[in-house]
Design a binder for these strands. Structure first.
Lengths: 206, 206
DNA sequence: AAATTTTGCTACCGATCGGTACTGAACGGA
DNA sequence: TCCGTTCAGTACCGATCGGTAGCAAAATTT
């Protein structure tokens, strides 16, 4: 059996889709962010995306897949501060950048308050457990990235020997998660940045 | 028009209810805690409560009222540590007791992980906005209680003059909320207690 | 121009949602 | 004992849930 591999990526036979899939995904992400997985109905989603149910299923699979892809977009978009923070030179700057990014994204004007990775689905009934588990894994993944980064900082002498990277990572992630909840409760950016500053006042010295 | 006022409270005419309303409410609270407001269907709730839909509506009103009453029970039960913590003699002990209580309740074996006041409803669609607002008010109420307590601590000299009680309260509540999210993500009691300890290492001296 | 493929649309699927009408039985007060 | 009230249970309400079938129009390939 011969298979034609599309090298030029220019030959999608048939009528091309009439909407921007990226922008549609962006809209879906915002709805999930604001209303959570269970609270976002297909009607909410598709009307925000500007497409019909048929087009949505053809382009994204189903609601769970749409959520997964929206989370990926969230990770590379509003939550990209997580990856950037890991590149800071010192552990303390990593933590500060991570918390500052969390504050900024959770309180961004024009965007939903809080964090999709937290309020997307913390507790759910049967039909929403896949989404819930996906988000749990997402948060724990972030925690692991921080831990690895702090472990490196210990190895490099950036953090005092004997420092527990696991604890530090959990601590930073806990504060970030709390910031997200507080933002969803209506807390403002300045107040939360002060909280983030306070959370770093006891950081291990270099 | 004459009205008979029931002074003895011993004359409920008609057939008495055949179930323990308190225990039924307890069961409902657990379902809301585990699955959230939107994720808990009436079928889930009533089958856990061991009563029929009719009895539930007669005894508690509707789903929103049931949730409100379940939250009250949660406040006086698993979340009673909040009230106890305020009675500690010093601000630092208040904060420590609050966070320790948050860790214990969020990771109690046999109970759902996390905090009903957080994961009950952080983001919701239209039908769940009342529950969401109720929880937001509940969390902000807790924040206010802490602020008042810390204000008193400042007035009494327990905290250094110039200390910002609002910031302290927000800080403690943020960490507690983060602990709840972490517990819902599977974090264990010991790990979270270490996080709570770390969060208090920079507490203002007395 | 023919062939192919996806579009956008309506209408619909079975299942479940929160909530209620109706019924017969069980209980208390008179 | 009889009346009045509330019980628990079933069956059902309209609405909405996530997901699809079928179709004519549109757009790209060959």
């Amino acid at each position: 059996m011969l298979v034609d591999v599309d090298i030029t990526q220019k030959a999608p036979v048939g009528r091309p889709r009439g909407f921007d899939a990226d922008e549609a995904l962006e809209r879906a992400m915002l709805v999930f962010w604001e209303q959570g997985y269970e609270g976002a109905s297909l009607t909410d989603l598709t009307s925000a995306m500007g497409i019909t149910r048929t087009s949505m299923y053809a382009a994204f699979g189903n609601k769970e897949e749409l959520f997964r892809k929206a989370l990926e977009r969230y990770t590379e978009g509003p939550a990209a501060y997580g990856g950037w923070a890991l590149k800071e030179p010192t552990a303390r700057e990593v933590a500060a950048a991570f918390l500052a990014g969390s504050v900024r994204t959770s309180t961004c004007p024009g965007l939903p308050a809080g964090c999709l990775g937290v309020q997307g689905s913390l507790a759910a009934g049967d039909p929403g457990q896949v989404a819930r588990d996906t988000l749990t894994a997402w948060r724990n993944e972030g925690c692991s990235r921080l831990r690895e980064r702090f472990q490196r900082a210990v190895d490099e002498g950036d953090l005092p020997p004997g420092t527990d990277p696991e604890l530090l990572a959990r601590y930073v992630m806990t504060v970030a998660n709390g910031i997200a909840v507080q933002a969803a409760s209506g807390a403002g950016r300045d107040a939360l940045q002060k909280v983030a500053d306070m959370a770093l006042r006891n950081w291990p010295p270099a």
